[in-house]
Each structure stands twice: as structure tokens, then as C-alpha cells.
Design a protein around this nucleic acid. Sequence first.
RNA 1: AGCGGGAUGGGAUAGCCAGGAGAUUCCGCCGGGCUCAUAACCCGGAGAUCGGUAGUUCAAAUCUACCUCCCGCUACCA
Length: 720
Amino acid sequence: MSSQDFPTEETAVVTCGLPYANGDLHVGHLRGYTAADAFNRALERIGQETAYVSGSDMHGTPVAVNAWQEGVSPEEFSLEWHEQYAETFPKFDVDFDNYGHTHDETNTELTREIVRELEAEGFVEERTIEVAWDPEEDQALPDRYVEGTCPYCGEQARGDECDEGCGRHLEPGEIEDPVSTVTGNPAEYREREHKFFTVSKLADFLTEFLDDLDGTDNARNQPRQWIEEGLQDWCITRDMDWGIDYPGEHSSEDDLVLYVWVDAPIEYIASTKQYSERVGADVYDWEDAWNGSEQSDSENAGEIVHFIGRDIIQHHTIFWPAMLHVAGYDTPRAVCATGFITINGKGLSTSRNRAIWAQEYLDEGFHPDLLRYYLTTNGGLQQDIDFSWEKFADRVNGELVGTLGNFAYRGMLFAFRNYDGTPEATVSEEVEAEIEDAIDSVHAAVNEYDVRAIGTAPVELARFGNEYIQRNEPWSLVDDEPEAAAQVIYDCVQLSKACAVLAEPVMPGTAEELWTQLGEDGSVHDVELEAALEPPADEFEEPTELFEGVEDERVEELDAKLADRVASAADGEDESNVDESDDAADGDSAADTDATDEDAESADDVPADLDPVLEDRIGFEEFQDLDLRVGRIETAEGIEGADELVKLTVDIGVEVRQIVAGLKQLHDVDELPGTKVVVMANLEAAELFGVESDGMVLAAGEQADLLTTYEDAVPGERVR
RNA sequence: AGCGGGAUGGGAUAGCCAGGAGAUUCCGCCGGGCUCAUAACCCGGAGAUCGGUAGUUCAAAUCUACCUCCCGCUACCA
């Protein structure tokens, strides 16, 4: 890449995706925030001027819809979540220099200012488009207020994104057959004036931008494809009242607000600005970070580094740099998109309660550093990583307790007992070289955005330390060769000090603890990596163990708890799904790094590709809930455009139903009429390929072998 | 079926972008050592044709093409 290595003379700013203010935080969120926090701390350790900022994402239709359902104002609703987030992050030592929210004054002002700038530069056009409208309520239905059919792939889609089909971002008015998600009313389209940001004019700029962009590969490759396919202009306004009013005189009467994705990333700037205003521009000047090229020769002087979840790459590599560029700000140096988290190998799912919640983790009494270490070092940033309590315990016990904690403790305890602190000596060449290497590796890791390597550095150094102390056996030297023993122990204290410095980014609390135990002055949060080579303090108190192990029984207990919770969430599926309405809603979240639902429960150990019998038994009463009927197919015709679907009318005695079934390739459609079948009669109706299907015809296996009766059962008889 | 991510010793991971020695580390296993340390630590060993095939190259885990399989999301298996 074309960027200069860190540390640079410029001012850096590190951000992480904005948590969307409509749900509890979980390990998926935490992964991104701890990675960015560790990266920012590592930047500080190598002497880069930097700030770490973020804020809550308050606007958008999911908040409005959820608030409406709870009967509170969107502001009240989102502020409550915002406050919870603001309280939670410090508990994980996620140390934002500023944490704001998108609904505050700074962001509102700045957003309007930037939009005016986009207008002034001629990148905003007013266009008349058709928007979904609820005729009964007489209100507009932007984004998630409406569902319908994707015009590109024909799938069921949300108003703003074809979430289930081709994954495209949908512009207002594009979705077909719209229905209000609030009232269920079919929506009609009305003509409205809206503002468009002409992103399509910026393809060349964006291509160049991507060529110079640092960070993870996925953040560079995916948008390239989108550009090749052709960029669409972006509608940046919505007909609703929750959001930032579109700047200008005539807009207020129309309830025209800016689309949430306009003001959300601007919070990165706003939050930096708030930080600057609080500490003073002489300490940190937000304009150097966001507008550094004004004062500097280089074109891209600000060192802007975004950490995001991989689901929001498009917003950060297309819309956002386009806005920054036109409004005269610097564009990002790097976008690092993290992978998802799985729990015990399965997708994290908030609605199924298969998640490790932030508060839950804390309530279990674990130190935040343990999770920080696990999340940042379990795999590369881009990689999906799995969380299980067993693996967690494994890594804590092996690497933190056994290697890092043990090394620091044994060396320092030896030193304390024999020398009341650091013995008289100077660092050996071998140890000095080892520490230098470790420092270099962290430097390199920062420049490669390799948070994992930043995290493993202190543990690797401790591993060397354990080997070193073992090889030199100070315990057998201490009587006969006191000088040699002193040398070894001095080296160990030096190594412990280096571990403290190296551990700071990923395990800030533990690092500070170790630093204090070593009798060092000040805080490890204020030193640079080179402090690892400075002579340790002469005296220190008796050390204590840095980490506590996680017992096997504890792991079993935690696993059981998680399993119970997932099971009970599954029981109450219907109800809980309504409350949680849709964690899918936080797809708008700027940091939603959970993998989404996955279900098929494990089917290992079963021969011949057959699914095992489900473990959960149901009661007879539940079986009684199934209304299975004998039916006779009356008519059958293929559905145009569908490969497999057949539209059937089936006589089930009490009535004739229209049912869609996937039989076309497997049966001769003309021969189906007259066939007796078994029908699941009280299944809720669904629409398949635009055709209503009221019930389900039972069939077995891939070949859709139809279930039938062999004697004289007549249509309408129940099957039991 | 579409899109995305993978495939490296028993399990989990690194290396791949910028091709070159005996392929990294952790867990597990076998054997040994140490006893300063939280049954922690250290050493040695077994164990990988780096998913397959073809190609580029003096040289491929790494680059190219095709293929297979796995995972996730989504879907016309209602």
C-alpha cells in the first residue's frame, strides 16, 4: 500500500462501527470494539498520536418501529440503549476517547453542514420517486416499514435491502408488492420529492480510493465488484420524523429527514470533534485527523482507520468515502472488516438466545482481559471465530495462566524472596535481543492491522521467559554462583516488564496490574514500547498471580447454562420472536458482527445421510395440534418461472385448498390429479413465488415421494 | 441453486497478498527432565503427499485454471 508506516507525523483516529441502539451488546459486538481498542492502544504504544472514538447509532426505521411497538418515543428508546452502551464499554476496558451518539447536537450540526456541502458541490439532485404509502394511516412507509418483493431477484425483501435474496441495497420505491410492516396494510405508491447523492459520478474516484486503501482484503475486493457492476445514485432522504431534518427551508413541512446511513458515519467525525473540544485542540485536533490534507502536503494526511463488521463494508467503502471526498474531508487510510462469531460452532443468534451477552460475561465474574485476549487472538481479523466456554477455558488456562501469568509470577517471586526486588545486574544480550524482536513484531503487526499478532506478542515473550529461566536454573545457582543467578533473575524481571508493556493493548487491566507489581512509576498506559527495555524498578512487593484458572466444572456449568437458555428460547419461540422482533433489524447497525441464525441441529454420527431423530420429544397434545387430513388432488399446474413448484387444488373434504408444492421435476404434473395425499391442513398460509399456498402436501425425501392412503379413506378424514 | 468464507499432522490455528532451507504455534498423545512457579514449567518424540488435477517457474502451501468437499447466509425442499 502507499501509506507510510506508523507511527507517522500525522494525527490518527481509530473508529469502530456504531452500535445500533436497539438491543443488548454481545460478544459479536465486543469482538470489533476490543480489536479496535487494542489497535488504538498499540498505536499509542508506538508513539502515534491517535484517538479512539465511536458513538451510538440512534436513527433509522428499526429504532422508530421498535419504539413505536413499546409505546415510547424513538428518542427515549434509543437514549436508553445509548446509556447502557456507554456504561458497558468501560467495563471491558474499551477506552473511547469520546463516545457520543448520532442524535446529539454536534452530529446534527455537522451532518447538516456536510449535506449542504454536497449540495453546493452539485452532487445532490432532487428527484420525484414513488414511495410506499399506507393509505389508511396516511403515512409514508420508508425502509423497514415496508416489505415486499425484490425487483432484481424476485425474493421477499425488506424495504431497504434484499436481505433474503440477492443482498442488494434497495432504493425507496424499488420494492414491489409493498406491505406495511406495522399495520399489515397493503401499501400503495405515491410520488414524493427526494434527494439523491450522485454517487455514480464518483466511480473513478472510488476506484482510486480503493487502490490505496489499507486494511482487510474483503473491504477492498467486494466494493470493486460493486463499482464494476455500476453504481446507483443514493437516495439520502426519508419521509419520517425520526432523524436529522434535511437542511433547508422547505423541508420541515414534509417531514423529510436524512437517511440514517448519512448521519451515522458522520458521528465518527462528530465524536472526534467532541473529544477535541473537551481536551483542547492543542492536545488533539480533530481537524488534523479529518482534514489533515489541508495543512499538509500529502493528499491524505489524516490517518483514519475504521474497524467494522463485514456486513457494512458497502457503507464504509462506497458511500462514506464518496461523502468525505465531496465534502472536502480526508478519506480513510484503512478499513478493517472483522468476521463473525459463532457459538459452539453455530451461528450466534440473539433471537434464539444463542449468544454470550456482555453483561452475562461480567456477571460470571471473569476479567474482561480474558475475553479480550480470546476474541483478538483466536483467529485473524477477517476470519470467523468460534466461541465456546471450553476453548475459552483452554486458552485462559494454557496461555494466560500457565505461560504468561506463571512466568511473571515465578520470576518475580524468586526475585522478591532473594533480592527484595530486582537484583543488581544489567540485561543480558540474549534477553535484550529477544525483547527487541518482540517490539519489532508489534510494530510490524500494527502496520499490517494484525491485531492477533499484537495480542500474542506478550505470551510468546513469556514463553521464551519460561524456557530461559528453566534453561538457566537460577534456583540451583543462587547458592554457589550468586552473580549468575542474579543475572538470570534480573533478566526475568526485565522480561516481565516487557510483557507488561506488550500486553497493554489487548490486556490493559492485567498489564497495569503487572506494571504496578513491578514497582514501576506511572502507568503502563502512558509508556511506549521502548519502555520494555528500560531498567526495571529496584524494589517491589511480593507478587500475586495475574490470572485465575477456569476449572472444568465451571466450564460444564457455563455450557449447561447456555444450552438451557437456547432450549427455553426455542420453546417460547413465538413469543420471544415478537419481543426481540428482529435482531435482523440491527443489520443497520454499524457493528453487527454476529453471524445470523443457523438451525439444523447436529446430525453427526448417523450413517447413510439420515438425520437423527430429534432429541426433543413432544407431548401427545402437541401432536394433536397437527391437523392432518386426507386430500385428493383436483388440479395441478406448474408455476411459470419456477423449476419445481406446482400449484395444486386439493379437496380436503371440508373445503378445496390451493397448495403449492415442490413436485414439478419429480412427478408428471398431468398425472397428479386424482392422487390421494396427506395434507397438513392447519399450517399457516404462505406465499411462494407469488402464489398463495394454504397448507402443505406431505412427501418424503429428495424425490418427494408422496404420502397417501391405501384403503378407502375419504378426503377430509383426519390422520392420526 | 446463488453469494460469501474455508480446506495445512488427532483437534484448533499461522504462513498465502510481496513463491525459495527441516512448514508455525497451541491443545492432545508418547517418553524424559525440573522442582523457583497456580499439577504450573522445560526438553525430546510420533504424527501433514499443505483438499484434488493440470499449468506457470530453476523453485509452489503460496501464482493461474478447472474440479471436489465443508461451513455460513439466502432460497422455489411448506
